[in-house]
C-alpha cells in the first residue's frame, strides 16, 4: 500500500498574540508547526502501514524551510519525504496548490492520500477535494474513523453536521481527516535519528511535469485584493452585584436583545 500524506507548515496560532490596539496579528518569533489536522493524517497513514505494510510518503509544498515539517513527519514514522519547492509555485491559491500537489502525486503514485481537514492559517478546506478532482479520484471529507481497509476498498465514518455517514469507497481515494480520528504519536528516539539522516527529495516545476500557466500566482484564479483587521466589538459590560442581582440583570439584557 502506497500512502501519501499532504502536510502544510503553518504558524503556531497558539503563540500568536493579537495587538489590542490595531487588532492585527503579532507574528514576531512565532514558531512554525505542522498543521494540527495533518498530524492526525500522518498518524492514520502510519497505522494503515503497520496493518497492511507499505510505505508512507509525506509531501509538502513550500519554501525550503518547510523541510523541517517533513523531518518531523519522518520522526513520527513516515518513510519518505518530498518537498515541492520552486519559485514558480509562489502565490498559489487553492486551485494552483491542488494542481501542483496532484501533479506530484501522479508522479509518486498512491493508493490512499491523506490530508488534514483544513489548514489553520487559511481555513479553506478546499485543497483536499480539489486535489482529488485533479487526480480524477474520489474523496471523502472529515473522516473520524476508519472501519476497514482492503487492497481495493476502504470503509470510513464521515462527520456531518448532525451525525456521521458510513461511507465506502474504492481505492485509490483521497481522505481528509478531523482530529477525532486518532491521537498522533510522539516521535520516537529511533524516529528522530531517522529524521536527521533522511534524504529529502526536492521537486520543482520540471520534475512534476507541470504546466507553467497553471502554477503559482499566474495559475491562480483568485487574487487577494486586500487584508484588513476585523471590526472591533463594542465595549463589554460587566454585570456586578450579588449572584441574584447578576442573574436578574442578565435576564434584562437577554430580554432586551429578544433572546428570551
Amino acid at each position: 500500500m502506497n500512502i501519501i500524506v499532504c502536510v502544510k507548515q503553518v504558524p503556531d496560532t497558539s503563540e500568536i498574540k493579537i495587538n489590542p490596539e490595531t487588532n492585527t496579528l503579532m507574528r514576531e518569533g512565532v514558531p512554525s508547526i505542522i498543521n494540527p489536522f495533518d498530524l492526525h493524517a500522518i498518524e492514520a497513514a502510519i497505522q494503515i502501514k503497520e496493518q497492511t505494510g507499505g510505505k508512507v510518503t509525506v509531501l509538502t509544498m513550500g519554501p525550503p524551510q518547510a523541510e523541517t515539517s517533513l523531518r518531523e513527519s519522518i520522526a513520527m514514522g513516515a518513510d519518505e519525504a518530498v518537498l515541492l519547492s520552486d519559485r514558480a509555485f509562489a502565490g498559489s491559491d487553492t486551485w494552483a496548490t491542488s494542481y501542483t500537489l496532484a501533479k506530484a502525486i501522479e508522479k509518486l503514485g498512491a493508493d490512499i492520500i491523506f490530508c488534514g481537514k483544513q489548514a489553520i492559517d487559511g481555513d479553506t478546506a478546499q485543497v483536499g477535494p480539489e486535489t482529488a478532482e485533479f487526480l480524477n479520484m474520489p474523496h471523502i471529507s472529515y473522516i473520524k474513523k476508519i472501519e476497514d481497509v482492503t487492497d481495493s476498498s476502504i470503509k470510513v465514518q464521515r462527520m456531518m453536521d448532525e451525525g456521521y455517514d458510513v461511507v465506502e469507497s474504492s481505492l485509490p481515494v483521497l481522505l481528509t481527516v478531523v482530529k477525532e480520528l486518532n491521537q498522533p504519536r510522539m516521535p520516537s528516539l529511533k524516529g528522530k535519528m531517522a529524521a536527521k539522516k533522511a534524504q529529502i527529495t526536492t521537486m520543482g516545476m520540471a520534475d512534476i511535469g507541470a504546466d507553467e500557466n497553471s502554477l503559482g500566482l499566474k495559475g491562480s484564479p483568485t487574487q487577494v485584493r486586500n487584508i484588513f483587521a476585523p471590526e472591533v466589538k463594542a465595549e463589554r459590560k460587566m454585570i456586578e452585584g450579588s449572584p441574584e442581582e447578576q442573574v436578574e440583570n442578565l435576564l434584562k439584557e437577554l430580554k432586551e436583545i429578544k433572546c428570551i
Binding site: L25, I120, D121, D123, T222, R225, F228, A229, P230
Partner: peptide, 16 residues
C-alpha cells in the same frame, strides 16, 4: 476571515 477570524481578506476572481 482567515487565521480563525483574526484577519479578514477580500478575494477576487477577475479572469475566470
Amino acid at each position: 476571515p482567515a487565521f480563525g477570524g483574526n484577519i479578514m481578506a477580500t478575494i477576487l476572481c477577475p479572469d475566470y
